[in-house]
């Protein structure tokens, strides 16, 4: 029996209108992710300082 698979499109479909609200939310998500990475760096620095300073 043939089995068809639904494949998620690799490229987001081109929309006729720009979605500025969506772009702003996307930017906010990216900034939050970066702040999370920076937060991890802060924790590491404090652990290192606690151990050796």
């Amino acid at each position: 029996m043939e089995r068809t698979e639904r494949v998620e499109p690799r490229i987001p479909p081109m929309t006729a209108r720009s979605n500025w609200g969506g772009y702003a939310r996307g930017m906010a998500v990216e900034i939050l992710f970066i702040l999370f990475i920076i937060g991890a760096g802060v924790v590491l620095a404090f652990v290192a300082a606690e151990l050796w300073l």
């Binding site: 991890a40 290192a48 300073l53």
Partner: peptide, 22 residues
């Protein structure tokens, strides 16, 4: 690599406190 560098710099005593180290 932040782990390696912070622990190395802390051990070497290059910076005086955790904030400067970070």
């Amino acid at each position: 690599f932040v782990l390696v560098a912070t622990f190395w710099l802390a051990k070497a005593g290059v910076y005086p406190d955790a904030m400067a180290l970070f």
